[in-house]
């Protein structure tokens, strides 16, 4: 077992991978286009309201609207032919006192929904990476 060789092989692999082009297929396609995203968000919203850690946040929420807005938002983020028509993230989450743990619970709810929807791990990661920068717009507002 030669770990030094493994180290150099791994560094070469790591460097090469940065220059490798990302997958040709768009995220919008990987998520199953509008229909797939709509189904995904149905599962997602159900997971949210069923999660005892965060369900209290959604007691007053119009879930049909949330579903619709999430679908527009994910579709647009993923490069699909949609325009998000909802409120901006700061406005819609101000006053909700969302904690870091709440945010993580939402991520887990989305991951479960993506698993159930059969979305590949690479596409899951790309969607999560697009949502992650919204953390500061949503948490502790």
């Amino acid at each position: 077992m030669n770990i030094k060789a493994l180290f150099s092989a791994a560094s070469v692999f790591f460097l090469l991978s940065f220059s490798a082009s990302t997958s040709a297929q768009s995220l919008y396609q990987d998520l199953g286009e509008l229909e797939g995203i709509d189904q995904l968000n149905e599962r997602f919203v159900i997971n949210l309201v069923e999660d005892r850690r965060i369900s209290h946040h959604f007691e007053q929420t119009d879930l049909a609207r949330l579903h619709q807005m999430l679908t527009e938002q994910f579709c647009e983020l993923a490069g699909g032919p949609c325009v998000y028509s909802g409120d901006d993230m700061v406005t819609s989450h101000t006053g909700l006192n969302i904690t870091r743990s709440d945010f993580n619970a939402l991520v887990e709810a989305l991951q479960l929904a993506m698993d159930d929807q059969g979305i590949a791990i690479g596409a899951q990661n790309r969607l999560l990476a697009l949502l992650a920068p919204m953390h500061h717009e949503v948490v502790n507002r």
Partner: peptide, 10 residues
């Protein structure tokens, strides 16, 4: 951590 780094892996 990078959620979607090289090969779309974290």
């Amino acid at each position: 951590a990078w959620l979607a780094g090289p090969f779309d892996r974290t």
